[in-house]
Nucleic acid binder design. Sequence first.
RNA 1: CGGGGUAUGGCUCAAUUGGCUAGAGCAUCUGGUUUGGGACCAGAGGAUUGUGGGUUCAAGUCCCACUACCCCGACCA
Length: 488
Amino acid sequence: MAEKLPTREENYSEWYNQIAIKADLAEHSAVKGCMVIKPYGYAIWEKMQRALDDMFKATGHVNAYFPLLIPKSFLSKEASHVEGFAKECAVVTHYRLKTNDKGEIVVDENAKLEEELIVRPTSETIIWNSYKNWIQSYRDLPLLINQWANVVRWEMRPRLFLRTVEFLWQEGHTAHATADEAVTEAKKMLDVYTDFVENWMAIPVIKGVKTESERFAGAVETYCIEAMMQDGKALQTGTSHFLGQNFAKAFDVKFADKEGKLEYVWATSWGVSTRLMGALIMAHSDDSGLVLPPKLAPTQVVIVPIYKEATELETLTAVANTIKKSLELKGISVKYDDDDTQRPGWKFAEYELKGVPIRIALGARDLKNGTVEIARRDTKEKINSPLEGIAETVENTLQLIQKNLYERALAFRQSHTCEVNTLAEFKEKIEQGFVSAHWDGTAETELKIKEETKATIRCIPLNNTQEKGKCIYTGKPSAQRVIFAKAY
RNA sequence: CGGGGUAUGGCUCAAUUGGCUAGAGCAUCUGGUUUGGGACCAGAGGAUUGUGGGUUCAAGUCCCACUACCCCGACCA
Protein backbone atom coordinates (compact mmCIF):
# COMPACT_ATOMS: atom_id res chain seq x y z
CA MET A 1 0.00 0.00 0.00
CA ALA A 2 2.89 2.31 0.65
CA GLU A 3 4.42 1.80 -2.77
CA LYS A 4 3.94 4.48 -5.35
CA LEU A 5 1.66 3.87 -8.30
CA PRO A 6 3.30 4.00 -11.70
CA THR A 7 2.41 7.18 -13.56
CA ARG A 8 0.19 7.37 -16.62
CA GLU A 9 3.08 8.51 -18.79
CA GLU A 10 5.45 5.78 -17.64
CA ASN A 11 3.23 2.84 -18.40
CA TYR A 12 -0.45 3.36 -19.01
CA SER A 13 -1.23 -0.32 -18.90
CA GLU A 14 0.49 -0.88 -15.60
CA TRP A 15 -1.01 2.28 -14.15
CA TYR A 16 -4.48 1.04 -15.02
CA ASN A 17 -3.85 -2.38 -13.54
CA GLN A 18 -2.44 -1.02 -10.31
CA ILE A 19 -5.41 1.26 -9.78
CA ALA A 20 -7.86 -1.56 -10.35
CA ILE A 21 -5.96 -3.74 -7.87
CA LYS A 22 -4.66 -1.28 -5.27
CA ALA A 23 -7.88 0.72 -5.03
CA ASP A 24 -9.36 -2.63 -4.02
CA LEU A 25 -11.75 -2.98 -6.94
CA ALA A 26 -10.65 -6.35 -8.27
CA GLU A 27 -7.94 -8.95 -8.47
CA HIS A 28 -6.87 -11.69 -10.84
CA SER A 29 -8.57 -15.01 -10.29
CA ALA A 30 -7.09 -18.49 -10.03
CA VAL A 31 -8.52 -19.15 -13.48
CA LYS A 32 -6.55 -17.18 -16.00
CA GLY A 33 -8.60 -14.48 -17.62
CA CYS A 34 -11.22 -14.45 -14.91
CA MET A 35 -11.52 -11.73 -12.31
CA VAL A 36 -12.57 -11.42 -8.70
CA ILE A 37 -14.59 -8.27 -8.13
CA LYS A 38 -13.87 -7.21 -4.56
CA PRO A 39 -16.50 -5.62 -2.28
CA TYR A 40 -15.43 -2.05 -3.03
CA GLY A 41 -15.54 -2.61 -6.77
CA TYR A 42 -18.84 -4.38 -6.47
CA ALA A 43 -20.34 -1.51 -4.47
CA ILE A 44 -19.64 0.76 -7.44
CA TRP A 45 -21.07 -1.77 -9.87
CA GLU A 46 -24.20 -2.01 -7.69
CA LYS A 47 -24.70 1.74 -7.91
CA MET A 48 -24.37 1.50 -11.68
CA GLN A 49 -26.80 -1.39 -11.78
CA ARG A 50 -29.38 0.45 -9.75
CA ALA A 51 -29.22 3.59 -11.87
CA LEU A 52 -29.44 1.63 -15.12
CA ASP A 53 -32.20 -0.61 -13.83
CA ASP A 54 -34.30 2.43 -12.89
CA MET A 55 -33.77 3.79 -16.39
CA PHE A 56 -34.82 0.50 -17.98
CA LYS A 57 -37.96 0.34 -15.85
CA ALA A 58 -38.76 3.96 -16.70
CA THR A 59 -38.68 3.00 -20.38
CA GLY A 60 -41.11 0.13 -19.88
CA HIS A 61 -38.78 -2.82 -19.50
CA VAL A 62 -39.03 -5.69 -17.01
CA ASN A 63 -36.37 -8.06 -15.71
CA ALA A 64 -36.28 -11.81 -16.26
CA TYR A 65 -33.69 -14.56 -16.11
CA PHE A 66 -32.73 -17.21 -18.64
CA PRO A 67 -30.44 -20.26 -18.32
CA LEU A 68 -26.66 -20.10 -18.22
CA LEU A 69 -26.32 -23.21 -20.40
CA ILE A 70 -27.36 -23.18 -24.02
CA PRO A 71 -27.77 -26.33 -26.12
CA LYS A 72 -25.21 -26.23 -28.92
CA SER A 73 -27.90 -26.58 -31.57
CA PHE A 74 -29.54 -23.31 -30.46
CA LEU A 75 -26.39 -21.38 -31.11
CA SER A 76 -26.07 -22.64 -34.64
CA LYS A 77 -29.56 -21.59 -35.71
CA GLU A 78 -28.45 -18.12 -36.73
CA ALA A 79 -25.52 -18.48 -39.13
CA SER A 80 -23.58 -15.25 -38.65
CA HIS A 81 -24.23 -15.34 -34.90
CA VAL A 82 -22.55 -18.70 -34.39
CA GLU A 83 -19.72 -17.69 -36.69
CA GLY A 84 -19.06 -14.64 -34.55
CA PHE A 85 -18.99 -16.46 -31.23
CA ALA A 86 -17.79 -19.98 -32.09
CA LYS A 87 -14.13 -19.15 -31.46
CA GLU A 88 -14.62 -18.15 -27.85
CA CYS A 89 -17.13 -20.54 -26.34
CA ALA A 90 -16.75 -22.58 -23.17
CA VAL A 91 -18.35 -25.98 -23.74
CA VAL A 92 -19.83 -28.38 -21.18
CA THR A 93 -19.37 -31.94 -22.33
CA HIS A 94 -19.80 -34.06 -19.17
CA TYR A 95 -21.93 -33.99 -16.06
CA ARG A 96 -19.98 -36.12 -13.57
CA LEU A 97 -16.55 -36.70 -12.08
CA LYS A 98 -15.17 -39.89 -10.58
CA THR A 99 -12.11 -41.14 -8.69
CA ASN A 100 -9.73 -43.32 -10.72
CA ASP A 101 -7.34 -46.10 -9.51
CA LYS A 102 -4.69 -43.56 -8.58
CA GLY A 103 -7.17 -41.71 -6.41
CA GLU A 104 -7.30 -38.74 -8.77
CA ILE A 105 -10.47 -36.92 -9.63
CA VAL A 106 -11.16 -37.35 -13.34
CA VAL A 107 -13.99 -36.75 -15.75
CA ASP A 108 -16.31 -39.74 -15.93
CA GLU A 109 -16.32 -40.65 -19.62
CA ASN A 110 -19.59 -42.50 -19.09
CA ALA A 111 -21.22 -39.23 -18.18
CA LYS A 112 -20.85 -37.63 -21.61
CA LEU A 113 -23.69 -35.35 -22.61
CA GLU A 114 -25.57 -36.33 -25.73
CA GLU A 115 -25.62 -32.71 -26.80
CA GLU A 116 -22.92 -30.33 -25.57
CA LEU A 117 -23.98 -27.25 -23.67
CA ILE A 118 -22.46 -23.87 -24.30
CA VAL A 119 -21.90 -21.45 -21.42
CA ARG A 120 -23.73 -18.40 -22.75
CA PRO A 121 -21.50 -15.85 -24.49
CA THR A 122 -24.73 -13.83 -24.93
CA SER A 123 -28.34 -14.95 -24.62
CA GLU A 124 -30.07 -14.18 -27.91
CA THR A 125 -30.56 -17.83 -28.81
CA ILE A 126 -31.85 -19.18 -25.52
CA ILE A 127 -34.12 -16.17 -25.12
CA TRP A 128 -35.56 -16.41 -28.61
CA ASN A 129 -36.24 -20.06 -28.01
CA SER A 130 -38.53 -18.92 -25.16
CA TYR A 131 -39.96 -16.00 -27.12
CA LYS A 132 -41.19 -18.46 -29.70
CA ASN A 133 -43.69 -19.72 -27.12
CA TRP A 134 -44.45 -16.33 -25.64
CA ILE A 135 -45.39 -14.52 -28.81
CA GLN A 136 -48.43 -15.42 -30.88
CA SER A 137 -50.34 -12.23 -31.48
CA TYR A 138 -49.72 -8.52 -31.94
CA ARG A 139 -51.19 -8.23 -28.43
CA ASP A 140 -48.06 -9.91 -27.07
CA LEU A 141 -45.92 -7.14 -28.54
CA PRO A 142 -43.82 -5.29 -27.82
CA LEU A 143 -42.02 -7.65 -25.48
CA LEU A 144 -39.50 -5.62 -23.50
CA ILE A 145 -37.24 -7.74 -21.31
CA ASN A 146 -33.91 -7.19 -19.63
CA GLN A 147 -31.63 -9.71 -17.97
CA TRP A 148 -28.83 -9.13 -15.45
CA ALA A 149 -26.39 -11.97 -15.83
CA ASN A 150 -22.87 -13.24 -16.23
CA VAL A 151 -21.53 -14.40 -19.58
CA VAL A 152 -18.39 -16.23 -20.65
CA ARG A 153 -16.27 -15.47 -23.67
CA TRP A 154 -12.95 -17.29 -23.85
CA GLU A 155 -10.83 -14.30 -24.81
CA MET A 156 -7.20 -14.86 -25.65
CA ARG A 157 -5.89 -11.73 -23.99
CA PRO A 158 -7.83 -10.74 -20.91
CA ARG A 159 -7.59 -7.47 -19.03
CA LEU A 160 -9.20 -6.58 -15.73
CA PHE A 161 -12.72 -5.26 -16.34
CA LEU A 162 -12.07 -4.49 -20.02
CA ARG A 163 -11.91 -8.02 -21.31
CA THR A 164 -12.31 -10.87 -18.86
CA VAL A 165 -13.32 -14.43 -19.60
CA GLU A 166 -16.37 -14.08 -17.39
CA PHE A 167 -18.08 -10.75 -17.02
CA LEU A 168 -21.26 -9.29 -15.58
CA TRP A 169 -23.66 -7.35 -17.74
CA GLN A 170 -27.22 -6.64 -18.57
CA GLU A 171 -28.70 -7.63 -21.88
CA GLY A 172 -32.01 -6.32 -23.12
CA HIS A 173 -33.92 -8.40 -25.66
CA THR A 174 -37.02 -6.94 -27.21
CA ALA A 175 -39.53 -8.04 -29.84
CA HIS A 176 -41.64 -5.69 -31.95
CA ALA A 177 -44.36 -5.73 -34.58
CA THR A 178 -42.58 -3.44 -37.03
CA ALA A 179 -39.06 -2.69 -38.15
CA ASP A 180 -39.54 0.99 -37.39
CA GLU A 181 -40.57 0.29 -33.84
CA ALA A 182 -37.55 -1.96 -33.30
CA VAL A 183 -35.14 0.62 -34.72
CA THR A 184 -36.72 3.25 -32.49
CA GLU A 185 -36.23 0.96 -29.49
CA ALA A 186 -32.57 0.31 -30.36
CA LYS A 187 -31.93 4.04 -30.65
CA LYS A 188 -33.87 4.78 -27.49
CA MET A 189 -31.73 2.40 -25.49
CA LEU A 190 -28.61 3.96 -26.97
CA ASP A 191 -29.92 7.25 -25.59
CA VAL A 192 -30.44 5.64 -22.19
CA TYR A 193 -26.82 4.46 -22.21
CA THR A 194 -25.64 7.88 -23.30
CA ASP A 195 -27.58 9.47 -20.49
CA PHE A 196 -26.09 7.06 -17.99
CA VAL A 197 -22.47 7.23 -19.14
CA GLU A 198 -22.48 11.01 -19.48
CA ASN A 199 -24.54 12.00 -16.47
CA TRP A 200 -23.61 9.31 -13.97
CA MET A 201 -20.15 8.26 -15.03
CA ALA A 202 -19.25 11.76 -16.22
CA ILE A 203 -17.74 10.43 -19.44
CA PRO A 204 -18.69 12.08 -22.73
CA VAL A 205 -19.51 9.68 -25.56
CA ILE A 206 -19.98 9.73 -29.30
CA LYS A 207 -23.16 8.05 -30.45
CA GLY A 208 -22.86 6.30 -33.73
CA VAL A 209 -23.43 3.32 -35.91
CA LYS A 210 -20.86 0.59 -36.58
CA THR A 211 -19.54 -0.26 -40.02
CA GLU A 212 -20.41 -3.67 -41.42
CA SER A 213 -17.15 -5.26 -40.31
CA GLU A 214 -17.55 -4.09 -36.70
CA ARG A 215 -21.21 -5.09 -36.51
CA PHE A 216 -22.52 -7.54 -33.90
CA ALA A 217 -22.80 -11.12 -35.12
CA GLY A 218 -26.40 -11.50 -36.20
CA ALA A 219 -27.36 -7.83 -36.25
CA VAL A 220 -28.68 -5.76 -39.14
CA GLU A 221 -27.41 -2.55 -37.58
CA THR A 222 -25.23 -1.98 -34.52
CA TYR A 223 -25.41 1.32 -32.67
CA CYS A 224 -22.74 2.18 -30.15
CA ILE A 225 -21.35 4.79 -27.83
CA GLU A 226 -17.61 5.38 -27.90
CA ALA A 227 -15.60 7.09 -25.18
CA MET A 228 -12.01 8.30 -25.13
CA MET A 229 -9.64 7.14 -22.43
CA GLN A 230 -6.74 9.21 -21.12
CA ASP A 231 -4.26 7.58 -23.50
CA GLY A 232 -6.36 8.68 -26.45
CA LYS A 233 -7.67 5.20 -27.20
CA ALA A 234 -11.32 4.47 -27.74
CA LEU A 235 -13.46 2.24 -25.58
CA GLN A 236 -16.89 1.08 -26.64
CA THR A 237 -18.99 1.66 -23.55
CA GLY A 238 -22.32 0.37 -24.78
CA THR A 239 -24.06 -1.19 -27.77
CA SER A 240 -27.59 -1.49 -29.03
CA HIS A 241 -28.49 -3.70 -31.99
CA PHE A 242 -31.31 -3.74 -34.46
CA LEU A 243 -31.52 -7.45 -35.21
CA GLY A 244 -34.10 -7.27 -38.01
CA GLN A 245 -35.94 -10.56 -38.33
CA ASN A 246 -32.80 -12.67 -38.16
CA PHE A 247 -33.53 -14.32 -34.83
CA ALA A 248 -37.27 -14.48 -35.40
CA LYS A 249 -36.60 -16.45 -38.56
CA ALA A 250 -33.97 -18.64 -36.92
CA PHE A 251 -36.34 -19.53 -34.08
CA ASP A 252 -39.54 -19.27 -36.07
CA VAL A 253 -41.16 -16.54 -34.00
CA LYS A 254 -44.25 -15.26 -35.82
CA PHE A 255 -47.17 -13.20 -34.66
CA ALA A 256 -50.65 -12.66 -36.06
CA ASP A 257 -51.20 -9.00 -36.90
CA LYS A 258 -54.53 -7.18 -36.71
CA GLU A 259 -55.51 -8.52 -40.14
CA GLY A 260 -54.75 -12.04 -38.98
CA LYS A 261 -51.67 -12.26 -41.19
CA LEU A 262 -48.63 -14.12 -39.83
CA GLU A 263 -45.41 -12.06 -39.68
CA TYR A 264 -41.95 -12.58 -38.26
CA VAL A 265 -41.27 -10.24 -35.34
CA TRP A 266 -38.56 -7.59 -35.30
CA ALA A 267 -35.93 -7.65 -32.62
CA THR A 268 -33.37 -5.61 -30.73
CA SER A 269 -30.73 -6.43 -28.15
CA TRP A 270 -28.57 -4.08 -26.14
CA GLY A 271 -26.05 -4.33 -23.35
CA VAL A 272 -23.49 -2.76 -21.09
CA SER A 273 -21.03 -4.68 -18.96
CA THR A 274 -18.53 -4.47 -16.12
CA ARG A 275 -16.29 -3.00 -18.82
CA LEU A 276 -17.88 0.27 -17.71
CA MET A 277 -15.81 -0.10 -14.54
CA GLY A 278 -12.71 -0.09 -16.71
CA ALA A 279 -13.94 3.03 -18.49
CA LEU A 280 -14.53 4.70 -15.15
CA ILE A 281 -10.97 4.00 -14.06
CA MET A 282 -9.32 5.03 -17.31
CA ALA A 283 -11.36 8.15 -17.92
CA HIS A 284 -10.91 9.95 -14.61
CA SER A 285 -8.14 8.49 -12.48
CA ASP A 286 -4.81 10.22 -11.92
CA ASP A 287 -1.43 9.25 -10.56
CA SER A 288 -2.73 9.24 -6.97
CA GLY A 289 -5.36 6.65 -7.80
CA LEU A 290 -9.01 6.33 -8.59
CA VAL A 291 -11.26 9.35 -9.07
CA LEU A 292 -14.94 8.58 -8.72
CA PRO A 293 -17.82 10.72 -9.91
CA PRO A 294 -19.91 11.55 -6.81
CA LYS A 295 -23.02 9.89 -8.19
CA LEU A 296 -21.28 6.52 -8.27
CA ALA A 297 -19.00 6.75 -5.24
CA PRO A 298 -20.02 4.27 -2.54
CA THR A 299 -18.62 6.74 -0.01
CA GLN A 300 -19.03 10.32 -1.13
CA VAL A 301 -17.46 12.02 1.85
CA VAL A 302 -14.91 10.86 4.36
CA ILE A 303 -14.24 12.70 7.61
CA VAL A 304 -10.76 12.38 9.09
CA PRO A 305 -10.14 13.59 12.65
CA ILE A 306 -6.74 15.00 13.54
CA TYR A 307 -5.86 14.86 17.22
CA LYS A 308 -3.12 14.34 19.76
CA GLU A 309 -4.91 12.84 22.71
CA ALA A 310 -7.97 10.76 23.34
CA THR A 311 -9.80 13.60 25.06
CA GLU A 312 -9.42 15.69 21.94
CA LEU A 313 -10.86 12.89 19.86
CA GLU A 314 -14.04 12.92 21.92
CA THR A 315 -14.72 16.55 21.07
CA LEU A 316 -13.86 15.98 17.43
CA THR A 317 -16.09 12.93 17.25
CA ALA A 318 -19.03 14.91 18.54
CA VAL A 319 -18.55 17.54 15.86
CA ALA A 320 -17.87 14.95 13.17
CA ASN A 321 -21.06 13.09 13.99
CA THR A 322 -23.07 16.29 13.74
CA ILE A 323 -21.58 16.92 10.29
CA LYS A 324 -22.20 13.33 9.32
CA LYS A 325 -25.86 13.51 10.30
CA SER A 326 -26.47 16.77 8.49
CA LEU A 327 -24.93 15.31 5.32
CA GLU A 328 -26.86 12.09 5.60
CA LEU A 329 -30.09 14.08 5.85
CA LYS A 330 -29.28 15.25 2.33
CA GLY A 331 -28.76 11.69 1.13
CA ILE A 332 -24.97 11.95 1.08
CA SER A 333 -23.03 8.84 2.10
CA VAL A 334 -20.42 9.62 4.72
CA LYS A 335 -17.71 7.66 6.45
CA TYR A 336 -16.19 8.93 9.69
CA ASP A 337 -12.78 7.33 9.98
CA ASP A 338 -11.69 7.50 13.62
CA ASP A 339 -9.49 4.42 13.24
CA ASP A 340 -6.76 4.94 15.80
CA THR A 341 -4.24 2.62 14.14
CA GLN A 342 -3.57 4.82 11.10
CA ARG A 343 -2.26 8.35 10.97
CA PRO A 344 -4.02 11.18 9.12
CA GLY A 345 -1.45 11.31 6.30
CA TRP A 346 -1.94 7.63 5.66
CA LYS A 347 -5.70 8.05 5.56
CA PHE A 348 -5.47 10.98 3.14
CA ALA A 349 -3.46 8.89 0.70
CA GLU A 350 -5.69 5.87 1.16
CA TYR A 351 -8.95 7.68 0.39
CA GLU A 352 -7.36 9.38 -2.58
CA LEU A 353 -6.35 5.99 -3.90
CA LYS A 354 -9.93 4.86 -3.50
CA GLY A 355 -11.36 7.92 -5.21
CA VAL A 356 -13.56 9.31 -2.44
CA PRO A 357 -14.78 12.64 -3.93
CA ILE A 358 -14.59 14.80 -0.79
CA ARG A 359 -12.45 14.58 2.32
CA ILE A 360 -13.16 16.64 5.39
CA ALA A 361 -10.30 17.05 7.85
CA LEU A 362 -11.14 18.15 11.33
CA GLY A 363 -8.65 19.11 14.03
CA ALA A 364 -8.12 21.36 17.03
CA ARG A 365 -7.22 24.24 14.74
CA ASP A 366 -10.60 23.96 13.05
CA LEU A 367 -12.53 23.73 16.29
CA LYS A 368 -10.95 27.00 17.38
CA ASN A 369 -11.77 28.75 14.07
CA GLY A 370 -15.17 27.13 13.54
CA THR A 371 -14.03 25.69 10.22
CA VAL A 372 -13.21 22.40 8.51
CA GLU A 373 -10.82 21.62 5.70
CA ILE A 374 -12.59 20.41 2.58
CA ALA A 375 -10.42 18.64 0.01
CA ARG A 376 -11.67 17.85 -3.48
CA ARG A 377 -10.43 14.63 -5.05
CA ASP A 378 -10.80 15.84 -8.63
CA THR A 379 -8.71 19.01 -8.33
CA LYS A 380 -6.80 18.18 -5.12
CA GLU A 381 -7.86 21.66 -4.03
CA LYS A 382 -8.17 22.29 -0.28
CA ILE A 383 -10.29 25.04 1.23
CA ASN A 384 -11.12 26.02 4.77
CA SER A 385 -14.85 26.23 5.02
CA PRO A 386 -16.99 27.47 7.90
CA LEU A 387 -18.67 24.75 9.90
CA GLU A 388 -21.85 26.74 9.56
CA GLY A 389 -23.75 25.53 6.47
CA ILE A 390 -21.31 22.68 5.86
CA ALA A 391 -23.99 20.37 4.46
CA GLU A 392 -24.88 22.86 1.72
CA THR A 393 -21.23 23.47 0.92
CA VAL A 394 -20.56 19.77 0.56
CA GLU A 395 -23.69 19.17 -1.47
CA ASN A 396 -22.73 21.93 -3.88
CA THR A 397 -19.16 20.75 -4.08
CA LEU A 398 -20.27 17.22 -4.96
CA GLN A 399 -22.30 18.63 -7.83
CA LEU A 400 -19.33 20.73 -8.93
CA ILE A 401 -17.11 17.66 -8.94
CA GLN A 402 -19.60 15.67 -10.99
CA LYS A 403 -19.78 18.52 -13.49
CA ASN A 404 -16.06 19.17 -13.52
CA LEU A 405 -15.19 15.53 -14.22
CA TYR A 406 -17.45 15.53 -17.24
CA GLU A 407 -16.14 18.82 -18.54
CA ARG A 408 -12.55 17.81 -17.99
CA ALA A 409 -13.07 14.57 -19.89
CA LEU A 410 -14.88 16.44 -22.67
CA ALA A 411 -12.10 19.01 -22.96
CA PHE A 412 -9.56 16.20 -23.11
CA ARG A 413 -11.45 14.48 -25.88
CA GLN A 414 -11.84 17.69 -27.85
CA SER A 415 -8.15 18.48 -27.60
CA HIS A 416 -7.33 14.94 -28.78
CA THR A 417 -9.71 14.89 -31.72
CA CYS A 418 -9.02 16.37 -35.12
CA GLU A 419 -10.00 16.27 -38.78
CA VAL A 420 -7.47 15.07 -41.30
CA ASN A 421 -7.47 14.93 -45.09
CA THR A 422 -4.40 12.93 -46.01
CA LEU A 423 -3.07 9.52 -45.04
CA ALA A 424 0.22 11.00 -43.81
CA GLU A 425 -1.64 13.38 -41.55
CA PHE A 426 -3.85 10.52 -40.42
CA LYS A 427 -0.88 8.39 -39.36
CA GLU A 428 0.54 11.24 -37.34
CA LYS A 429 -2.68 12.29 -35.60
CA ILE A 430 -4.04 8.83 -34.89
CA GLU A 431 -1.35 8.42 -32.22
CA GLN A 432 -3.01 11.18 -30.20
CA GLY A 433 -6.65 10.19 -30.22
CA PHE A 434 -9.74 10.36 -32.41
CA VAL A 435 -9.44 11.28 -36.04
CA SER A 436 -12.32 12.37 -38.21
CA ALA A 437 -11.67 11.48 -41.83
CA HIS A 438 -13.29 10.63 -45.13
CA TRP A 439 -13.63 6.98 -46.06
CA ASP A 440 -14.88 5.40 -49.27
CA GLY A 441 -17.34 3.16 -47.44
CA THR A 442 -15.76 -0.19 -48.29
CA ALA A 443 -14.69 -2.91 -45.87
CA GLU A 444 -11.49 -3.43 -47.90
CA THR A 445 -10.29 0.11 -47.32
CA GLU A 446 -11.23 -0.13 -43.65
CA LEU A 447 -9.16 -3.30 -43.32
CA LYS A 448 -6.17 -1.82 -45.14
CA ILE A 449 -6.19 1.22 -42.87
CA LYS A 450 -6.38 -1.09 -39.88
CA GLU A 451 -3.43 -3.14 -41.07
CA GLU A 452 -1.32 -0.07 -41.73
CA THR A 453 -2.20 1.99 -38.68
CA LYS A 454 -3.91 -0.34 -36.15
CA ALA A 455 -6.78 2.13 -36.13
CA THR A 456 -10.36 1.12 -36.80
CA ILE A 457 -13.53 2.98 -37.58
CA ARG A 458 -15.11 3.40 -34.18
CA CYS A 459 -18.37 4.66 -35.58
CA ILE A 460 -20.21 6.76 -38.06
CA PRO A 461 -21.71 9.41 -35.78
CA LEU A 462 -25.50 9.60 -35.69
CA ASN A 463 -26.85 12.81 -37.29
CA ASN A 464 -23.46 13.16 -38.95
CA THR A 465 -22.81 16.29 -41.01
CA GLN A 466 -22.94 15.34 -44.66
CA GLU A 467 -19.89 16.74 -46.38
CA LYS A 468 -18.45 15.70 -49.72
CA GLY A 469 -14.80 14.70 -49.71
CA LYS A 470 -12.23 12.14 -50.81
CA CYS A 471 -11.28 8.94 -48.99
CA ILE A 472 -7.92 9.46 -47.32
CA TYR A 473 -6.76 6.02 -48.45
CA THR A 474 -8.17 5.49 -51.94
CA GLY A 475 -9.14 9.02 -52.92
CA LYS A 476 -12.57 7.78 -53.93
CA PRO A 477 -15.56 10.04 -53.22
CA SER A 478 -17.04 10.04 -49.73
CA ALA A 479 -20.21 11.62 -48.40
CA GLN A 480 -19.19 12.06 -44.79
CA ARG A 481 -16.38 11.84 -42.26
CA VAL A 482 -16.18 8.90 -39.83
CA ILE A 483 -14.40 8.52 -36.49
CA PHE A 484 -11.19 6.52 -36.48
CA ALA A 485 -9.21 5.53 -33.37
CA LYS A 486 -7.14 2.81 -31.84
CA ALA A 487 -9.41 0.82 -29.58
CA TYR A 488 -9.37 -1.40 -26.53
C1' C B 1 -1.18 -20.22 -31.17
C1' G B 2 3.52 -17.06 -32.80
C1' G B 3 7.61 -13.37 -30.84
C1' G B 4 10.06 -11.45 -26.37
C1' G B 5 10.75 -11.43 -21.02
C1' U B 6 10.43 -12.90 -15.82
C1' A B 7 10.37 -16.51 -11.75
C1' U B 8 14.40 -15.22 -4.80
C1' G B 9 10.26 -14.17 2.82
C1' G B 10 3.27 -11.56 2.31
C1' C B 11 4.89 -7.34 -1.58
C1' U B 12 9.04 -4.74 -4.57
C1' C B 13 13.81 -5.80 -5.67
C1' A B 14 19.45 -7.13 -4.58
C1' A B 15 23.29 -10.80 -4.38
C1' U B 16 30.91 -8.88 -7.17
C1' U B 17 28.75 -12.33 -13.27
C1' G B 18 30.15 -19.64 -10.29
C1' G B 19 32.64 -18.68 -4.09
C1' C B 20 31.93 -17.91 2.71
C1' U B 21 25.85 -18.08 7.12
C1' A B 22 21.03 -15.50 0.26
C1' G B 23 20.71 -9.22 1.70
C1' A B 24 17.60 -4.61 1.80
C1' G B 25 13.08 -1.60 1.64
C1' C B 26 7.87 -2.10 2.44
C1' A B 27 4.33 -5.05 5.24
C1' U B 28 3.63 -7.95 10.09
C1' C B 29 4.51 -8.33 15.60
C1' U B 30 6.75 -5.90 20.47
C1' G B 31 8.20 -1.42 23.11
C1' G B 32 8.77 3.80 22.94
C1' U B 33 8.09 8.62 20.78
C1' U B 34 4.37 10.82 17.57
C1' U B 35 -0.37 12.49 14.77
C1' G B 36 -2.63 19.09 9.50
C1' G B 37 0.15 14.51 3.52
C1' G B 38 1.64 7.45 3.15
C1' A B 39 6.21 9.25 10.57
C1' C B 40 10.66 8.00 13.49
C1' C B 41 13.88 4.96 16.84
C1' A B 42 15.04 0.12 18.90
C1' G B 43 14.09 -5.02 18.59
C1' A B 44 11.72 -9.73 16.72
C1' G B 45 9.62 -13.35 13.47
C1' G B 46 9.44 -14.80 8.47
C1' A B 47 13.13 -18.23 2.27
C1' U B 48 13.88 -26.14 0.49
C1' U B 49 15.76 -19.17 -4.51
C1' G B 50 8.77 -21.95 -9.56
C1' U B 51 9.32 -27.74 -10.52
C1' G B 52 12.51 -31.77 -12.19
C1' G B 53 17.16 -33.17 -13.99
C1' G B 54 22.38 -32.09 -15.39
C1' U B 55 27.59 -29.74 -15.26
C1' U B 56 31.06 -28.51 -11.04
C1' C B 57 35.32 -29.04 -5.37
C1' A B 58 31.29 -25.34 -5.23
C1' A B 59 24.89 -23.33 -8.45
C1' G B 60 20.12 -18.15 -6.78
C1' U B 61 23.93 -17.56 -10.71
C1' C B 62 25.76 -22.10 -16.19
C1' C B 63 22.95 -26.12 -19.40
C1' C B 64 18.27 -29.01 -20.60
C1' A B 65 13.10 -29.96 -19.86
C1' C B 66 8.57 -28.64 -17.68
C1' U B 67 5.18 -25.14 -15.31
C1' A B 68 3.27 -20.40 -14.14
C1' C B 69 2.96 -15.28 -14.88
C1' C B 70 3.90 -10.49 -17.68
C1' C B 71 4.50 -7.70 -22.34
C1' C B 72 3.72 -7.51 -27.93
C1' G B 73 0.40 -9.73 -32.02
C1' A B 74 -4.23 -12.58 -33.79
C1' C B 75 -9.69 -12.28 -30.91
C1' C B 76 -12.88 -8.81 -28.27
C1' A B 77 -18.63 -6.05 -24.41
